[in-house]
């Protein structure tokens, strides 16, 4: 810490405020979200004897992998002041494309993997082109893409899932090198790369800058529309990666995969401290947010709560998280 005001008479900021600011600076996270995660874990372990076990933790991570990758995409997009509602649909579309390429077309796994991620990236690129060149608001474009990508996923195989992926592809979803599920490895690896990209490169700094003030970024010479286009393409590619994880885990290209996942992904990002209106975002925070959603769902499963109620819980958490964020922003601006 390089605190320059060292006057002993001056009352310093509170211990909490200092811990908070150094956590935000050093780790790029909000402490509250970490505490919520720990408290939630503690409650679950009291309520269910099965919660505190290595295999259950693996389950949580495994279940979080898909949502987590989508949440990373949401973190970049929200951080840039944008919005991508098409994440879940693009994920489903990409999974079906991958299964079609591998099974129906019978092409090698490598090509199927590239096609899956590429299909997602293409959908994201289309989003980005319409948003940056035709000036249609991101809310509308990605809402439209939510419908289009879902429709395409259903059209490809007349609404039926495509089963029977080749073993090499299934390994990506079900393999366990050193006992760790492949989706967890892919998720953690993606998170590390994207954390470095966001926090330590010009690309990441400029992403937050355009979310903070597009005007400031433009006057600084940043090509805002090119950056936005690349961000939506990146978001689509990550949705494609999530589609790959999901399809290979369940061994099928399911056109209904990822339904309403954008809700959970955006919630995870916001719980992790990403500003809904851009300018502030952290991948580590989003990881914690995604784990909170994972623990919540896992705990509700262990407690045998009907899945209908889980959907309600996620929606309520989203509203609560944004409320707390806005409440803090107002509190800070009043000081």
């Amino acid at each position: 810490m390089t605190q320059s005001n060292s006057g002993p008479a001056k009352p310093g900021p509170s211990l909490w405020a200092r811990a908070q600011s150094s956590a935000i600076e050093q780790l790029h996270i909000r402490l509250e979200s970490l505490i919520v995660l720990l408290v939630l874990g503690a409650i679950m372990s009291v309520l269910s004897p099965y919660f505190l076990s290595v295999s259950n933790f693996m389950n949580i991570f495994l279940a979080t992998a898909t949502i987590g990758v989508l949440a990373i995409a949401a973190t970049f997009i929200l951080g840039s002041g944008g919005l991508d509602l098409s994440l879940g649909s693009v994920m489903g579309f990409a999974g079906v494309v991958g299964a079609w390429v591998a099974v129906t077309a019978g092409l090698p796994t490598g090509i199927a993997v590239i096609a899956t991620i590429g299909a997602g990236a293409l959908a994201g690129f289309v989003n980005g082109i319409i948003i940056t060149r035709a000036f249609v608001p991101a809310f509308i474009v990605t809402l439209g893409m939510l419908g289009i990508a879902r429709g395409l996923a259903l059209v490809i195989n007349n609404g039926a899932a495509i089963y029977g992926l080749p073993p090499a592809m299934v390994y990506l979803g079900q393999g366990r090198p050193m006992g760790i599920p492949m989706p967890v490895i892919i998720f953690i690896g993606t998170a590390i790369v994207m954390h470095i990209l966001l926090a330590y490169t010009r690309y990441g700094r400029h992403t937050l800058a355009i979310g903070d003030s597009e005007n400031a970024a433009r006057t600084a010479g940043i090509n805002v529309s090119r950056l936005r286009l690349s961000l939506y393409t990146l978001s689509g590619a990550l949705a494609g990666l999530a589609g790959l994880i999901f399809a290979t885990r369940v061994n099928a290209g399911d056109p209904t995969a990822g339904l309403t996942y954008e809700l959970t992904a955006i919630t995870a990002a916001i719980i992790g401290g990403t500003n809904l209106f851009g300018g502030r975002a952290s991948i580590l925070g989003t990881m914690i947010g995604a784990l909170i959603m994972g623990v919540l769902q896992n705990g509700l499963n262990l407690l045998a709560v009907q899945s209908y109620y889980q959907q309600m819980a996620i929606g309520a958490v989203l509203i609560l998280a944004v409320f707390i964020d806005q409440w803090q922003v107002r509190k800070e601006s009043r000081v």
Binding site: T201, R205, A209, D212, A216, A220, G221, I222, N275
Partner: peptide
């Protein structure tokens, strides 16, 4: 034309951030 949520150094160097090479990549 400041980015209000970013700190002083981020604003001063916005668009012209100095970089260092680590493992052949720019940070």
């Amino acid at each position: 034309a400041l980015a209000r949520q970013q700190d002083v150094s981020a604003n001063i160097f916005l668009g012209r951030e100095p970089e260092k090479k680590v493992l052949g990549m720019n940070f």
